[in-house]
Amino acid sequence: MSGQVLSGYLVPNQPLPLLAPDANRGWASLRDSCARVRAEIEASEADLLLLFSTRWVSIIGHQIQADPQPEWWVVDEDFHSYGSLHYKLRMDADFAAQYLDKAQARGLHARTVAYRGFPIDVGTITALRLLNPDNRIPACVVSCNMYSDRAETLVLGKAARDAVEASGRKAVVLGVSALSNRMFTRWIDPAHDRIHSQKDDEWNRKLLELLGDGRLEDVSQLAREFSHQANGDSKMKALWWMAAALGENNHYRGTVFDYQPVWGTGAALVGLQPAAASVGDLEYDEDGAEFFRGDRNVLAPNDPGRHE
């Protein structure tokens, strides 16, 4: 039986809604909205949560977490005064191996990682603690390569879909990412948190309007402009990856569960369920890559293929 990507969610990447929900009404709202998403996921047939986290940065290709039960703790680099996040997670190591195979089959440099004490990133821990607190559904996480651009990230998303289909899993994909990503660079009173600027807020709301209409592919195409204008998180690679994993189209029912500031950044909780109809089915000027052929190091003096 072929697997299936059931749905996708964009979820925040900052730990404050988990660490300090009582310090700010918006942070508490995000925590509460996660409970609604959690109920929606639990009501689905999902047997895999597949995450792409902008808080797990990689350099050497793409890393896939394959420790079946990572257990450790993490202290946020900025928000250490709010406490530690202890975790014991349940990962789908078999799926991680299949994702690795499919990524390599599409030309990507990738590897699985399973090391005691490996620092699972804050975004992943926060998302899983809020959406899957009892580890009922096993998870898998892939890193965000700092050099990959749209084409490579699309290929990574398509490899995720390949792996889900081949594995027979019913997967919910989670893009762990901020929208606008400009933080306050000083310590603020949490009660006075707000989006860093009106301009960032307006861009966030425009993006959420499109996502609310289910126009994920439109948002994927708009991501570069959004990132440029609103200091988008990691070029909005999480949305590229999600759009590819979900099929590169606008055929979704979008639900904006919440949108709040977290230390100046835009934190949104958005659900995308496949739908028969589409608000817009447009003709795009950017093609979707199917295979990754490596970095094109045009400045290398010799032997440019050595690292491909």
């Binding site: 940065v57 990689s58 350099i59 990682v113 090391y115 005691r116 004490g117 620092p119």
Partner: peptide
């Protein structure tokens, strides 16, 4: 300390 980028080299 496990390097999140090079965990194969630094633990």
């Amino acid at each position: 300390s496990v390097d999140p980028i090079f965990p194969n080299l630094f633990r």
